[in-house]
Simulated scan of single mutants.
Amino acid sequence: MRHKVYTRKHILNAAYDLIEKNGFSNFTARNVAAQMGVSTQPIYLEFENMEDLKQSLIESIMDELTQKVFSVEHTGDKLFDISINYIEFAQKKPRLFMAMYLDEKGGGSIMYDRSYQFFKETILQQEEYKDLTEQYIEALFHATWITLTGLAALMISKVVVPTRQQIIAIIEQSVNAILESNYEENTFGDIKK
């Protein structure tokens, strides 16, 4: 009996390396297998199909981001820390950032939903945000998400190069605009596709 050499983890690591270099545009079993130097057989032994591999990969990356990247403290304010970490992730791993957050074939709604859950759980741990309603939390998420994603994309392309203090000021303006407004439930509505 042959001993299994390529585990689920090996395949996920190869898939990660592939999308970190090329995004999801060439995310095929053949390309993942080539990254590993094997046939496609181990992939289909571990995963039902390529969509199963893709969903597993996205979940794995999001788990890593929430545990090791987005939770790093900088300022003591969890909302600002998440925001800074998101921008820094985009700067350190621009191709992975674009694949996960900007590529229409990428993480899409999974990344959006998981990012919102992490955002909500994290900021509710902070005294100044713990009494916010669900609508305010959603509005804060949308305001910071849209602002930060735009800022990260502009920074990746070197259109703007703000300092950390300038980034914090931009975040603060977005947060204050929501917190100081008479927020109405339909301000953002359901902005997801």
Results as ranks from 00 to 15, higher is better:
Asp17Tyr: 01
Met36Glu: 04
Ile19Tyr: 01
Ile137Lys: 08
Asn85Arg: 09
Ala34Leu: 11
Glu104Met: 12
Asn49Gly: 10
Glu48Arg: 14
Asn176Gln: 14
His142Glu: 14
Leu140Asp: 06
Pro42Ser: 04
Leu18Trp: 04
Ile43Lys: 02
Phe188Cys: 05
Ser157Glu: 12
Leu96Ile: 10
Ala169Ile: 00
Lys78Met: 09
Ile87Asn: 07
Glu104Lys: 14
Glu48Ala: 12
Ser109Val: 15
Met62Trp: 03
Val32Leu: 05
Thr133His: 10
Asn85Gly: 11
Thr28Arg: 00
Lys54Leu: 05
Arg30Glu: 13
Ile87Pro: 09
Lys193Trp: 11
Phe80Cys: 03
Glu64Phe: 13
Lys105Ser: 08
Gly23Ala: 07
Phe70Ala: 02
Thr7Asp: 06
Tyr116His: 07
Ile146His: 04
Arg95Ala: 11
Lys193Val: 06
Met111Arg: 08
Asp63Pro: 00
Arg2Tyr: 10
Tyr129Gly: 09
Arg30Pro: 00
Val38Asp: 03
Asp63Val: 02
Ala90Lys: 06
Asp52Glu: 13
Gln55Thr: 15
Arg2Lys: 11
Tyr116Glu: 06
Ala14Asn: 04
Leu12Ala: 08
Leu140Thr: 01
Phe47Asp: 07
Thr28Ile: 05
Gly189Thr: 11
Ala152Asn: 06
Ile84Phe: 02
Ile178Gln: 04
Ala15Ile: 00
Thr122Tyr: 00
Phe27Gly: 08
Ile11Phe: 07
Asp77Met: 03
Thr147Trp: 03
Gly23Tyr: 09
Glu121Lys: 14
Leu18Asn: 10
Asn26Thr: 15
Glu64Cys: 02
Phe70Asp: 03
Lys54Val: 05
Leu140Tyr: 02
Thr7Cys: 12
Leu79Gly: 04
Ser109Met: 13
Ser39Glu: 11
Phe70Thr: 02
Gln55Glu: 15
Gln35Ala: 09
Ile167His: 01
Ile11Trp: 01
Phe89Ser: 07
His142Arg: 10
His142Gly: 02
Ile178Pro: 03
Asn13Trp: 00
Ile170Trp: 01
Arg114Met: 13
Leu12Val: 03
Asn26Ser: 12
Tyr136Arg: 14
Ser115Pro: 01
Leu12Tyr: 07
Glu51Trp: 10
Thr147Met: 15
Glu88Ala: 10
Met98Val: 08
Lys78Ile: 01
Ile171Thr: 04
Tyr116Met: 05
Gly106Asp: 06
Glu46Cys: 15
His142Tyr: 13
Ile171Cys: 12
Glu51Met: 08
Met98Gly: 09
Ser109Trp: 00
Ile87Phe: 11
Asn13Pro: 00
Phe89Gln: 02
Asn13Cys: 03
Glu127Ile: 13
Asn22Phe: 07
Ser25Glu: 11
Glu46Ser: 15
Leu179Thr: 04
